[in-house]
């Protein structure tokens, strides 16, 4: 069980490292990313709120 936990943790970190090093999240063409932690930091949230509000 102990080794299973260690293997899972290592696998998890390898996957994250692969995603970042290969830029699978396409950082250049995305409006925002995981670094923005609160809705006020992301312009698209306010724009979406206004767009949906104006359509209702």
């Amino acid at each position: 069980m102990k080794y299973l936990k260690i293997i899972s943790l290592v696998f998890l970190l390898v996957v994250v490292f692969y995603i970042i090093s290969s830029d699978l999240g396409n950082s250049n063409n995305q409006p925002s990313g995981a670094g923005e932690i609160w809705w006020t930091e992301v312009e698209e949230i306010e724009e979406s709120f206004e767009n949906i509000g104006s359509r209702e």
Binding site: Q30, A34, I37, V42, I45, F49, I52
Partner: peptide
């Protein structure tokens, strides 16, 4: 993370991103 929601949902189109954001 809020920013990650917008980034991920933008791949599904504008309407999906608006719903996800709100």
């Amino acid at each position: 993370a809020t920013g990650a929601v917008v980034a991920a949902s933008s791949l599904l189109g504008d309407e999906a991103m608006e719903v996800a954001s709100v």
